[in-house]
Amino acid sequence: MKSAKFTVSALALAAAATAADARDEIRIVGSSTVFPYTQAVAEQFANNTGSPSPIVESTGTGGGMKIFCGGVGEAHPDITGASRAMKLSEYELCQANGVTDISEALIGFDGLSIAVSRANENDWDLSLQDIYLALAARVPVDGEWADNPYKTWDEINPDLPAVEILAYGPPPTSGTRDAFVELAMHAGCEELDYVKSGGFDGDWVEENCSRMRQDGQFVEAGENDNLIVQRLEADPNAMGIFGYSFLFENLDKLKPVMIDGVEPNSDTIADKSYPVSRPLYFYVKNAHRGVIPNLDEFIEEYMSDEALKADGYLSERGLVALSDERRIELQDSVLNADAMAVPTN
């Protein structure tokens, strides 16, 4: 591994020095999906070094970006996790607040899972179109674009059970929500005959097919995925939407819903046969490197083979690992504090 290099301004270092004087713990915010991986690295780091365990908060991807981009210094976190790439608007917020040197780490892949309680008696297999028609705010009804009237699954597909549509999912601040809208809702909308025959393009789909329904069939469950598990146990017919890692950790209580005949697992997510998969990231504030106690060592642990390889401890928790070639490129880039490219959207 190459040693880290630091190309930060004297002003940024001076601001970050205040943080070093004020706190000993590394501060990390961001995605609820990335949270268990970062928490695992934090625990491993503390066990290996005897240093204070980093403080890891699950704030959601959007919320984490806002906090992370707030500035440099003691009041601002060192790292944020994200279940999607940083947006241009977030990057510009960082730049405006003096967070001008950021490293991006794509740590692996995750599938967006739909799951039910193991007490559910049905074997579920949904198409992307089924998912859209069940959960979207607006759908085709008798040839018109209208508010979603469907209350039971068999109303949208007669092959599905005659049970109430009820899904617990992430809020708008979550990267999981962003990814689910893009990968499941938009893709399902594009499968509709109404959209195909109408010749509607991607801009139309993004404008008209992004809203989740708000009449009780889809319920925003916050950033705590454990609450979704509790609700699924209380109502076996309800479904939950979260990252594969959380399903993986709760297979004793939950079972996956197949999408287009494919079950989410490490193999189907890695080979992209599972249709709803996404990359996972974290972002490092490079002005805090070499200043915040133990931050460099923590990043080295996160980038270690023991954490990131296919047989590493993060894969044991559900992370789908990068190829060896991509992992080595990632490790070199992050440990060298390479600056991220400007996002394109």
Score class of each variant (00 low, 15 high):
residue 115 A to M: 11
residue 112 L to H: 06
residue 98 G to M: 01
residue 94 C to A: 05
residue 93 L to R: 15
residue 105 A to I: 05
residue 101 D to I: 03
residue 101 D to Q: 14
residue 90 E to F: 12
residue 90 E to C: 14
residue 115 A to S: 15
residue 104 E to A: 12
residue 94 C to Y: 09
residue 96 A to N: 11
residue 117 S to D: 10
residue 111 G to R: 10
residue 115 A to V: 15
residue 95 Q to L: 11
residue 114 I to V: 09
residue 108 G to E: 11
residue 113 S to H: 11
residue 102 I to L: 05
residue 113 S to P: 11
residue 92 E to D: 11
residue 110 D to W: 00
residue 96 A to P: 04
residue 114 I to Q: 07
residue 94 C to V: 07
residue 100 T to K: 14
residue 93 L to D: 10
residue 109 F to H: 13
residue 101 D to S: 08
residue 90 E to D: 11
residue 92 E to T: 06
residue 98 G to P: 00
residue 93 L to V: 12
residue 114 I to H: 08
residue 99 V to G: 03
residue 117 S to W: 13
residue 97 N to S: 08
residue 97 N to V: 03
residue 115 A to W: 15
residue 105 A to Q: 05
residue 94 C to N: 02
residue 116 V to N: 06
residue 119 A to E: 14
residue 108 G to N: 05
residue 108 G to I: 10
residue 115 A to Q: 09
residue 105 A to F: 03
residue 96 A to H: 13
residue 117 S to G: 05
residue 90 E to A: 14
residue 109 F to Q: 15
residue 98 G to R: 07
residue 110 D to N: 14
residue 107 I to Q: 03
residue 107 I to P: 02
residue 104 E to Y: 00
residue 106 L to G: 01
residue 104 E to M: 01
residue 115 A to G: 03
residue 119 A to N: 15
residue 94 C to D: 04
residue 110 D to I: 05
residue 115 A to I: 15
residue 111 G to T: 07
residue 94 C to K: 13
residue 119 A to M: 15
residue 116 V to Y: 07
residue 111 G to C: 08
residue 112 L to N: 15
residue 91 Y to T: 01
residue 109 F to G: 03
residue 108 G to C: 09
residue 108 G to L: 07
residue 112 L to R: 08
residue 93 L to Y: 14
residue 118 R to N: 12
residue 94 C to E: 02
residue 96 A to Y: 01
residue 114 I to C: 08
residue 99 V to Q: 03
residue 111 G to A: 13
residue 108 G to K: 12
residue 107 I to H: 09
residue 118 R to E: 07
residue 104 E to D: 12
residue 108 G to R: 06
residue 116 V to E: 05
residue 118 R to P: 00
residue 107 I to W: 09
residue 108 G to M: 08
residue 99 V to K: 09
residue 111 G to N: 13
residue 113 S to Q: 12
residue 114 I to Y: 12
residue 92 E to M: 06
residue 113 S to I: 02
residue 95 Q to W: 02
residue 96 A to C: 06
residue 91 Y to R: 05
residue 116 V to M: 06
residue 114 I to S: 03
residue 92 E to K: 14
residue 108 G to W: 07
residue 106 L to H: 08
residue 99 V to L: 09
residue 109 F to K: 14
residue 97 N to Q: 08
residue 93 L to A: 13
residue 91 Y to N: 02
residue 105 A to S: 05
residue 98 G to T: 01
residue 101 D to M: 08
residue 108 G to A: 06
residue 93 L to I: 06
residue 110 D to L: 11
residue 106 L to S: 09
residue 112 L to S: 07
residue 106 L to C: 03
residue 93 L to H: 09
residue 94 C to T: 04
residue 105 A to T: 05
residue 116 V to P: 04
residue 105 A to W: 04
residue 118 R to D: 00
residue 112 L to V: 14
residue 114 I to N: 09
residue 100 T to I: 14
residue 103 S to L: 04
residue 101 D to P: 00
residue 109 F to A: 12
residue 113 S to E: 06
residue 91 Y to L: 08
residue 102 I to H: 00
residue 116 V to T: 11
residue 92 E to L: 15
residue 111 G to F: 10
residue 101 D to Y: 09
residue 97 N to P: 02
residue 118 R to F: 06
residue 96 A to R: 13
residue 93 L to W: 01
residue 99 V to D: 01
residue 99 V to W: 12
residue 97 N to W: 03
residue 92 E to G: 04
